[in-house]
Design a protein around this nucleic acid. Structure first.
Lengths: 145, 145
DNA sequence: TACAGATGCTTGTAGAAGGCAAGTATTTGA
DNA sequence: TCAAATACTTGCCTTCTACAAGCATCTGTA
């Protein structure tokens, strides 16, 4: 079996999982909240544009996602005092709690699936995953340069 | 960084890749052709239902995908002589060629990204991926049983 | 200082992917 | 022989995402 097939199988499995075990929160929203949280703690503020970059989606998509999260009371838009066009995004208390719950939920799912793995294997697998993702990025950048 | 994050990053990278480097063939179609090919060589025939199971999609989705592939001349439906309700699916010559091209295209993409990897690392990573996918399946089955 | 262009964001529109439910035709088992 | 099961298709809906156009604000420069 080729790596190509392994990847396909993984993606397939994730698709199935996503469909059937619906989590505390739609997967996209978790990514959004996490991105906001991270951008904020990395740079102080958090503009929509940064979030879009962090989740690698179009700004319009991010905009709608934020609107939805705002409607659900998970995210707040605060006017940027230095730029009247922009808003600073931040999690509400509910958003923070919900994010923590969702992360815990996904972590538990993984822990359960990986309960037979040794710490060493987990460590190595994580390392390979990271390396692989980076290499995909790099080779993609080269190819489109 | 947690495995959860690594996975998220991988999925994100794959999404980006899928978007920008459009391949010889829509990714879904490749999976379809490959599934047909495999089911056929494993069981002789190939019913739609089997394909749907192989790609883990709803039968209706598979049905439309097959229709599209048929319109593109990649797949042929032959009436099943033993069952008037069913068709046997098979790749046309064009389908076989196209599949081979697409597989080569994806393989090249991967080879390029992974050109710095040792055979040993590739082997191990593939093993981890397979194991992980299986464990996800298993734990999902348990959880929904 | 006024204005052209850049920037931040939102909204309209469109398309792909996929599921569910209902419908049709055929087969099978009691 | 006929009711239930099966194989598939089709209608309809939702979700996700991109692109393009638009609006408001900001910034650099003449």
């Amino acid at each position: 079996m080729e790596l190509r097939d392994e990847l396909y199988e993984l993606v397939k499995a994730l698709r199935v999982l996503k469909q059937q075990r619906h989590p505390v929160l739609p997967a996209g929203t978790v990514g959004l909240l996490q991105a906001i949280d991270r951008v904020r703690s990395a740079t102080g503020g958090c503009h929509l544009k940064q979030v879009a970059a962090a989740i690698a989606l179009d700004q319009s998509t991010a905009s709608r996602a934020v609107s939805a999260a705002e409607r659900s009371g998970l995210v707040r838009r605060v006017a940027d005092p230095h730029d009247g066009r922009a808003s600073l995004l931040e999690l509400t208390d509910a958003g923070r709690t919900t994010l923590a719950d969702a992360v815990a939920w996904y972590s538990a799912l993984l822990s359960d699936a990986l309960r037979d793995w040794s710490d060493e294997d987990l460590e190595r697998f994580g390392g390979y995953l990271r390396r692989f993702t980076n290499d995909l990025h790099a080779s993609h950048l080269e190819a489109t340069r």
